[in-house]
Design a protein around this nucleic acid. Structure first.
Lengths: 87, 87
DNA sequence: ACGGTATTTAGAAAAATATCTAAATACTTG
DNA sequence: CAAGTATTTAGATATTTTTCTAAATACCGT
Protein backbone atom coordinates (compact mmCIF):
# COMPACT_ATOMS: atom_id res chain seq x y z
CA UNK A 1 0.00 0.00 0.00
CA UNK A 2 2.26 2.78 1.21
CA UNK A 3 5.86 3.41 0.46
CA UNK A 4 6.84 1.62 3.62
CA UNK A 5 5.77 -1.73 2.25
CA UNK A 6 7.07 -1.05 -1.21
CA UNK A 7 10.54 -0.05 -0.11
CA UNK A 8 10.70 -2.91 2.31
CA UNK A 9 9.73 -5.29 -0.47
CA UNK A 10 12.50 -3.93 -2.66
CA UNK A 11 14.99 -4.43 0.14
CA UNK A 12 15.27 -8.17 -0.35
CA UNK A 13 17.56 -9.55 -3.09
CA UNK A 14 15.34 -12.53 -3.85
CA UNK A 15 12.39 -10.25 -4.44
CA UNK A 16 14.40 -7.92 -6.66
CA UNK A 17 15.51 -10.92 -8.67
CA UNK A 18 11.90 -11.98 -9.04
CA UNK A 19 11.01 -8.55 -10.38
CA UNK A 20 13.82 -8.78 -12.92
CA UNK A 21 12.53 -12.16 -14.05
CA UNK A 22 9.12 -10.65 -14.68
CA UNK A 23 10.42 -7.95 -17.02
CA UNK A 24 9.88 -10.16 -20.03
CA UNK A 25 6.35 -11.08 -19.08
CA UNK A 26 4.22 -12.99 -16.64
CA UNK A 27 5.41 -16.20 -15.07
CA UNK A 28 3.72 -18.79 -12.92
CA UNK A 29 4.75 -19.23 -9.30
CA UNK A 30 6.37 -22.52 -10.26
CA UNK A 31 8.38 -21.02 -13.09
CA UNK A 32 9.59 -18.28 -10.78
CA UNK A 33 10.52 -20.80 -8.14
CA UNK A 34 12.56 -22.88 -10.56
CA UNK A 35 15.07 -20.02 -10.74
CA UNK A 36 15.85 -20.25 -7.03
CA UNK A 37 17.21 -22.81 -4.66
CA UNK A 38 14.30 -22.48 -2.26
CA UNK A 39 11.08 -24.26 -1.53
CA UNK A 40 7.89 -23.22 -3.25
CA UNK A 41 6.55 -22.11 0.10
CA UNK A 42 9.32 -19.58 0.47
CA UNK A 43 8.77 -18.25 -3.03
CA UNK A 44 5.09 -17.99 -2.26
CA UNK A 45 5.97 -15.93 0.82
CA UNK A 46 8.08 -13.52 -1.23
CA UNK A 47 5.38 -13.24 -3.86
CA UNK A 48 2.85 -12.37 -1.19
CA UNK A 49 5.06 -9.52 -0.02
CA UNK A 50 5.52 -8.23 -3.56
CA UNK A 51 1.78 -8.43 -4.00
CA UNK A 52 1.07 -6.53 -0.78
CA UNK A 53 3.51 -3.89 -1.98
CA UNK A 54 1.59 -3.74 -5.24
CA UNK A 55 4.74 -4.44 -7.17
CA UNK A 56 3.18 -7.48 -8.81
CA UNK A 57 -0.31 -8.59 -9.72
CA UNK A 58 -1.60 -12.07 -10.27
CA UNK A 59 -3.88 -13.62 -12.82
CA UNK A 60 -5.23 -17.13 -12.46
CA UNK A 61 -5.41 -19.40 -15.44
CA UNK A 62 -6.13 -23.10 -15.46
CA UNK A 63 -4.15 -24.67 -12.72
CA UNK A 64 -1.63 -21.85 -12.52
CA UNK A 65 -1.27 -18.46 -10.96
CA UNK A 66 0.69 -16.07 -13.12
CA UNK A 67 2.51 -13.10 -11.72
CA UNK A 68 3.26 -9.89 -13.56
CA UNK A 69 5.09 -6.65 -12.90
CA UNK A 70 3.15 -3.59 -11.85
CA UNK A 71 5.29 -0.88 -13.36
CA UNK A 72 3.17 2.03 -12.17
CA UNK A 73 4.28 1.45 -8.60
CA UNK A 74 7.89 1.38 -9.75
CA UNK A 75 7.24 4.85 -11.14
CA UNK A 76 5.96 6.03 -7.80
CA UNK A 77 9.08 4.81 -6.05
CA UNK A 78 11.20 6.65 -8.57
CA UNK A 79 9.15 9.75 -7.95
CA UNK A 80 9.80 9.50 -4.25
CA UNK A 81 13.49 9.12 -4.90
CA UNK A 82 13.56 12.04 -7.27
CA UNK A 83 12.65 14.39 -4.47
CA UNK A 84 15.96 13.54 -2.85
CA UNK A 85 18.05 14.75 -5.69
CA UNK A 86 18.20 18.29 -6.85
CA UNK A 87 15.10 20.28 -6.22
CA UNK B 1 28.54 -0.73 -1.74
CA UNK B 2 26.22 -2.79 -3.89
CA UNK B 3 22.54 -2.38 -4.47
CA UNK B 4 21.81 -4.90 -1.79
CA UNK B 5 22.95 -2.55 0.97
CA UNK B 6 21.44 0.49 -0.65
CA UNK B 7 17.99 -0.98 -1.09
CA UNK B 8 18.06 -2.45 2.37
CA UNK B 9 18.98 0.94 3.77
CA UNK B 10 16.05 2.53 1.96
CA UNK B 11 13.73 -0.07 3.41
CA UNK B 12 13.57 1.53 6.84
CA UNK B 13 11.23 4.48 7.47
CA UNK B 14 13.53 6.17 9.95
CA UNK B 15 16.34 6.14 7.44
CA UNK B 16 14.14 7.48 4.68
CA UNK B 17 13.07 10.27 6.99
CA UNK B 18 16.71 11.08 7.68
CA UNK B 19 17.37 11.33 3.96
CA UNK B 20 14.45 13.73 3.57
CA UNK B 21 15.85 15.87 6.37
CA UNK B 22 19.14 16.12 4.55
CA UNK B 23 17.62 17.49 1.35
CA UNK B 24 18.14 21.05 2.49
CA UNK B 25 21.75 20.54 3.46
CA UNK B 26 24.07 18.83 5.88
CA UNK B 27 23.10 18.29 9.49
CA UNK B 28 25.04 17.08 12.49
CA UNK B 29 24.19 13.75 14.08
CA UNK B 30 22.70 15.61 17.01
CA UNK B 31 20.49 17.79 14.85
CA UNK B 32 19.25 14.73 13.01
CA UNK B 33 18.57 12.95 16.27
CA UNK B 34 16.51 15.83 17.62
CA UNK B 35 13.86 15.04 15.01
CA UNK B 36 13.26 11.57 16.38
CA UNK B 37 12.13 10.05 19.62
CA UNK B 38 15.14 7.76 19.86
CA UNK B 39 18.45 7.71 21.58
CA UNK B 40 21.51 9.12 19.88
CA UNK B 41 22.93 5.63 19.79
CA UNK B 42 20.07 4.41 17.64
CA UNK B 43 20.40 7.35 15.29
CA UNK B 44 24.09 6.65 15.04
CA UNK B 45 23.26 3.08 14.07
CA UNK B 46 20.96 4.23 11.28
CA UNK B 47 23.52 6.73 10.06
CA UNK B 48 26.13 4.01 9.90
CA UNK B 49 23.85 1.97 7.67
CA UNK B 50 23.16 4.91 5.40
CA UNK B 51 26.89 5.51 5.23
CA UNK B 52 27.67 1.90 4.35
CA UNK B 53 25.05 2.18 1.63
CA UNK B 54 26.80 5.29 0.38
CA UNK B 55 23.58 7.24 0.64
CA UNK B 56 25.19 9.76 2.94
CA UNK B 57 28.70 11.06 3.50
CA UNK B 58 30.12 12.66 6.57
CA UNK B 59 32.37 15.63 7.12
CA UNK B 60 33.91 16.40 10.49
CA UNK B 61 34.07 19.92 11.72
CA UNK B 62 34.98 21.09 15.17
CA UNK B 63 33.24 18.90 17.64
CA UNK B 64 30.57 17.77 15.19
CA UNK B 65 30.08 15.25 12.46
CA UNK B 66 27.91 16.52 9.65
CA UNK B 67 25.99 14.23 7.37
CA UNK B 68 25.01 15.01 3.81
CA UNK B 69 23.07 13.34 1.04
CA UNK B 70 24.92 11.48 -1.68
CA UNK B 71 22.61 12.06 -4.59
CA UNK B 72 24.66 10.12 -7.12
CA UNK B 73 23.75 6.87 -5.42
CA UNK B 74 20.10 7.86 -5.48
CA UNK B 75 20.52 8.18 -9.24
CA UNK B 76 21.93 4.68 -9.45
CA UNK B 77 18.95 3.28 -7.58
CA UNK B 78 16.64 5.05 -9.98
CA UNK B 79 18.59 3.61 -12.86
CA UNK B 80 18.16 0.13 -11.47
CA UNK B 81 14.44 0.72 -11.11
CA UNK B 82 14.16 2.10 -14.61
CA UNK B 83 15.15 -1.26 -16.05
CA UNK B 84 11.96 -2.66 -14.60
CA UNK B 85 9.72 -0.41 -16.54
CA UNK B 86 9.62 -0.08 -20.25
CA UNK B 87 12.38 -1.59 -22.28
C1' DA C 1 -16.04 -37.58 -7.54
C1' DC C 2 -10.94 -39.01 -7.60
C1' DG C 3 -6.13 -38.46 -8.30
C1' DG C 4 -2.74 -35.39 -9.60
C1' DT C 5 -0.39 -31.04 -9.97
C1' DA C 6 0.19 -26.06 -8.42
C1' DT C 7 0.18 -23.02 -4.92
C1' DT C 8 -0.71 -21.23 -0.40
C1' DT C 9 -1.12 -21.38 4.70
C1' DA C 10 0.32 -22.69 9.40
C1' DG C 11 3.62 -23.37 12.66
C1' DA C 12 8.28 -23.53 14.11
C1' DA C 13 13.21 -22.45 14.00
C1' DA C 14 17.08 -19.64 12.65
C1' DA C 15 18.90 -15.35 11.32
C1' DA C 16 18.82 -10.48 10.90
C1' DT C 17 17.31 -5.92 12.57
C1' DA C 18 16.15 -2.10 15.60
C1' DT C 19 16.45 -0.38 19.93
C1' DC C 20 18.13 0.61 24.59
C1' DT C 21 21.69 1.52 28.43
C1' DA C 22 26.23 2.08 29.63
C1' DA C 23 30.82 2.71 28.43
C1' DA C 24 34.29 4.35 25.22
C1' DT C 25 36.24 7.60 21.89
C1' DA C 26 37.00 12.06 19.80
C1' DC C 27 37.46 16.66 19.78
C1' DT C 28 37.35 21.58 21.87
C1' DT C 29 38.30 24.88 25.02
C1' DG C 30 39.92 26.79 29.25
C1' DC D 1 45.90 18.26 30.79
C1' DA D 2 41.15 18.36 32.64
C1' DA D 3 36.27 19.00 31.92
C1' DG D 4 32.62 19.13 28.84
C1' DT D 5 30.03 18.08 24.72
C1' DA D 6 29.15 15.12 20.51
C1' DT D 7 29.12 10.85 18.71
C1' DT D 8 30.09 6.04 18.35
C1' DT D 9 30.75 1.26 20.05
C1' DA D 10 29.57 -2.81 22.90
C1' DG D 11 26.47 -5.81 24.73
C1' DA D 12 21.81 -7.16 25.63
C1' DT D 13 17.00 -7.70 24.41
C1' DA D 14 12.78 -7.57 21.73
C1' DT D 15 10.91 -7.69 17.32
C1' DT D 16 10.81 -8.81 12.59
C1' DT D 17 12.14 -11.48 8.73
C1' DT D 18 13.41 -15.47 6.17
C1' DT D 19 13.21 -20.09 5.63
C1' DC D 20 11.75 -24.86 6.21
C1' DT D 21 8.39 -28.95 6.65
C1' DA D 22 3.93 -30.49 6.69
C1' DA D 23 -0.72 -29.79 5.87
C1' DA D 24 -4.42 -27.44 3.43
C1' DT D 25 -6.65 -25.43 -0.63
C1' DA D 26 -7.56 -24.88 -5.48
C1' DC D 27 -8.11 -26.35 -9.85
C1' DC D 28 -7.73 -29.66 -13.75
C1' DG D 29 -8.68 -33.89 -16.41
C1' DT D 30 -10.43 -38.49 -16.55
Amino acid sequence: MGFAETFKALGDPVRREILLLLRRGQLSAGEIGSHFDMTGATISYHLSILKKADLVFETREKNYIYYGLNTSVVEEVMLWLSQLKGE
